[in-house]
């Protein structure tokens, strides 16, 4: 990891916990299933983004590691699309 200003680890922890509570509350709201699922997935991916960026320090890693980390994402989409054709 290159030199950088120390991240606010505890602040991110508070955000993650608050979002987890928000998710649990949101999951039981009387909303259409589509909007519930969309909202929950958006919140989950934002939490995952925070963990990867700040706790795994991806934010401060070289660009080449970013490229490498991005490689499986399109592959993962292709794999899911390939499985869908089974049905």
């Amino acid at each position: 990891m290159s030199e950088h200003e120390a991240p606010r680890y505890v602040l991110i922890w508070v955000v993650l916990l608050a979002m987890t509570l928000a998710e649990v509350g949101f999951a039981f709201m009387p909303l259409p299933k589509f909007w519930l699922a969309t909202g929950l997935i958006v919140m989950a991916f934002y939490k995952a983004y925070l963990v990867a960026m700040y706790y795994m320090h991806l934010k401060w890693e070289p660009k080449r590691l970013w490229v490498m980390a991005a490689v499986p994402l399109p592959l993962a989409v292709i794999m899911v699309l390939a499985i869908i054709t089974e049905f």
Binding site: A27, A44, V51, Y55
Partner: peptide, 14 residues
């Protein structure tokens, strides 16, 4: 931890 964040949402909340 990151994987659990996704699993918790998909398996338990949706």
């Amino acid at each position: 931890d990151l994987v659990w964040i996704i699993l918790f949402t998909i398996v338990y909340l949706i």
